[in-house]
Nucleic acid binder design. Structure first.
Lengths: 357, 357
DNA sequence: CTGAAAGCGCTTACAG
DNA sequence: CTGAAAGCGCTTACAG
């Protein structure tokens, strides 16, 4: 029988006890009773000492975890107060924006953001996964990471919630993801060029295995189709999201016998590569070549002329992902993982104009 | 007297004990003896329970900390495996580079990098400082942070090593810092323009309270002095490291009755603002205006024309700072905090040319 | 491989 | 405010 205080309730003075009687601590005696063994045996299991039969150890271990046993002096397990942010490369304008949003939201919630760049090395990824378990991170944000497949299972077994930003290789409906309306964005970029009067519009795609690359290309095809312009496959160059992809793609397009009068680059950074190649050839933007980017990072305003682009709120995507990962309540109640897409919208600046003639 | 094993050394079998006799655990009985009190009194201090005279408590507390007492069940205090990286703004090309270096080095050492952007808000800074103590971070890297003054003391009392990258407001020799040879960098940028034949060379400075801004300006003055060109103070504009500072500075300089034929911008991002303003006015670079930047971030290659700049290895600075903070051995043995400066070097691209005429 | 017994470290209730 | 005494939770040494 538990003892109770019979005193009438008084206004608390100084440090007051919590109202409800504190639940009695689980002791190893309780565990021993539950598992049908003696106290010393439990102690041995707990300290990994002495010989214990495998079956006995398992029974004790089980009782231990079920009861949520904790050593006497040991403090209640504080939340780590950390969220892991994992990305392939940190030092790109795109990554900076995503990181900025995640950092803001993490700190608004009083948790620290642990940042890891994997560089797509699998060795580094394994090391990271180990460290993650050790620091008992409260959640993980995986950004365009080809870790997603190998790590998702591990995270699930650690009960660590995670969200993917811009997943790789097609949607796995069992994984929660945050992205943007890439198809609509690709559509509006292309439509804008069509409306200016362009008929030969090139596209340079992003990293091919990313869902967002494929969708932007889908949008491009759809907009041309809508305008009754057949897609000339010579105008579709597969590249990557970086400046070198833009340079190479632009070079290939401008080398065509009938070069495009406009290029839809799949990222702003890639568009800067298109600028560089155009500049090298003395092709003026937008006079002789219109360029549209994607992302709307700060770089757009640093380029001359400022870049017309499709805005996706990368920081907002990251804020949302961070919130999802930190919202334990939602984690528990959600029946299905989520796929969230944020809107995109065309931002017209000075890199697009009607074609000459 | 300590017990010793008298048995002859045998090859270890299975899990062997460490060679030296394990030092006996400090118990509260030891503490009680040391502090000249009873065991229950120590227990009360330890658990903040019951009434203990202030003087007694202090004596016990002292014995406790000196002995490094630790509760029985409580595990040895694991290293947190974390380093904090604190910066004013994350989403700039400069910040990206510094972050990249810190992340690389942290992960090479198997520790996580916790990233915080302060935005120069003091409320946020206080919150961060609290979280830092809670997560028992192993070290802190403060990047151009005006936290340095308010936080340094706290970090010292937490015994948390820290390093400043590009300190604010003059060198405090009691704080370890990492930077670059900014004066030499400013000198070589200006010298390069002088050698091309420029005589009216403008400068836009960075954030005025940063040491690195002041030093770059010093280098500018020194190079002009060396060339026998008197410094025209109208050509010195105080700005900041961002694009808007460059735009405003360039506008002011180009509005002069006798505008400069070349501008030394104190950062690459600032130089992009100079580009924007020049473009707005139809001033061609480098034909009518030469521009030199500082930093050599990736942005230089994205600008058209590619930017001549002074290279400082930001990633290397950050790697070094991270190593310093993680090197416990050096922390202990070092008698004086360090000031380390990495070399700078001019990188000539296409934004500089001889003046017209 | 297991547990009865002894004992250690710490806390609690209480007398002074 | 302090500590002698009792007692709790856990571990250890050892018999079976």
């Amino acid at each position: 029988v538990e003892r109770r205080t019979d005193q009438p309730a008084k206004p608390a003075k100084g440090r007051s006890r919590p109202a409800r009687a504190p639940r009695k601590r689980v002791t190893i005696a309780d565990i021993a009773r539950e598992a049908g063994v003696s106290v010393p045996t439990v102690s041995k299991v707990l300290n990994d000492r002495g010989e214990v039969a495998a079956a006995t150890r398992a029974r004790v271990q089980d009782a231990l975890t079920r009861s949520g046993y904790r050593r006497r002096g040991s403090p209640a397990p504080r939340r780590a107060g950390l969220v892991d942010f994992v990305i392939t490369e940190l030092a790109t304008p795109w990554a900076s924006e995503v990181l900025r949003g995640a950092e803001e939201e993490a700190h608004r919630n009083g948790v620290g953001l642990v940042v890891t760049a994997t560089h797509d090395h699998h060795a580094g990824a394994r090391q990271w996964a180990k460290a993650l378990a050790a620091r008992r991170s409260d959640g993980v944000i995986l950004v365009v990471s080809d870790l997603q497949a190998s790590v998702a299972e591990q995270l699930q077994s650690l009960h660590t919630p995670f969200v993917l930003i811009d997943p790789v290789g097609g949607y796995d409906p069992s994984l929660p993801t945050v992205g943007a309306t890439n198809r609509a964005g690709g559509f509006s970029a292309t439509e804008h060029l069509v409306e200016l009067g362009h008929r030969r519009i090139g596209i340079i795609t992003g990293t091919p295995d990313l869902v967002c690359s494929q969708e932007r290309l889908d949008g491009y095809r759809a907009a041309l189709g809508r305008a009754g312009i057949p897609v000339d496959e010579a105008l579709v160059r597969h590249g990557n999201f970086h400046a070198d992809g833009g340079r190479r793609g632009a070079a290939a397009l401008l080398d065509l016998d009938e070069p495009p009068t406009a290029i839809f680059a799949s990222s702003d950074e890639q568009a800067s590569g298109v600028y560089a190649e155009a500049h090298r050839r003395g092709v003026r933007i937008p006079g002789e070549l219109s360029v549209v980017g994607f992302d709307d990072v700060e770089l757009c305003e640093w380029l001359t002329p400022p870049l017309t682009t499709v805005r996706q709120s990368l920081a907002e995507m990251a804020r949302l992902a961070t919130r999802m990962v930190l919202d334990r309540e939602a984690q528990r109640s959600a029946e299905h993982p989520l796929r969230i897409e944020l809107a995109t919208r065309l931002v017209v600046r000075e890199s697009t104009a009607p074609p000459r003639g």
